[in-house]
Amino acid sequence: MRSGTLNVPGIVGLGKACAIASAEMAGEASRLASLRDRLEIGIIAQTGAIVNGGGAPRLPHVSNLRFRDVKGADLLRGVTREIAVSSGSACTSANPEPSHVLLAMGVPEDLAHSSLRFGLGRFTTEAEVDRAIETVNQTVRELHAIYNL
Rank of each mutant, 00 (worst) to 15 (best):
I50V: 15
L116I: 10
I11C: 11
N137C: 15
D110A: 13
L116P: 06
D74P: 01
V136T: 08
G27W: 02
R2K: 10
T92R: 09
A132N: 00
E24D: 05
C18P: 00
L143K: 01
C91Q: 05
I41R: 15
S89D: 11
P60Y: 08
Q46P: 04
E109F: 10
P9Q: 12
N137Q: 08
A19P: 02
S89N: 11
A84S: 02
G54D: 11
N7H: 14
R131M: 14
N7A: 14
E126L: 02
G10L: 13
D37K: 10
A26Y: 07
A56N: 14
V136L: 03
V8H: 10
A21Y: 04
S115K: 07
E126F: 02
D37A: 07
S115A: 15
T125K: 06
N64I: 14
P9F: 10
L116M: 08
S3P: 01
G72L: 03
N148H: 04
G15H: 14
L111F: 10
P96G: 01
A112T: 09
I146H: 04
G42F: 07
I44F: 05
M105R: 08
L32W: 08
L39I: 09
D110R: 10
V140C: 01
H144V: 02
G121V: 09
G53I: 11
N7P: 06
G48A: 05
V140T: 03
G27Y: 01
S87E: 00
A104L: 05
C91E: 13
L59G: 14
P9W: 12
M105V: 05
T125D: 07
A84Y: 02
N137T: 15
E126R: 04
A49E: 05
A112W: 04
F118I: 09
T125R: 06
L14W: 06
P9H: 12
M105L: 15
T80H: 00
R117D: 13
A45G: 00
D110W: 10
G27P: 03
T125A: 06
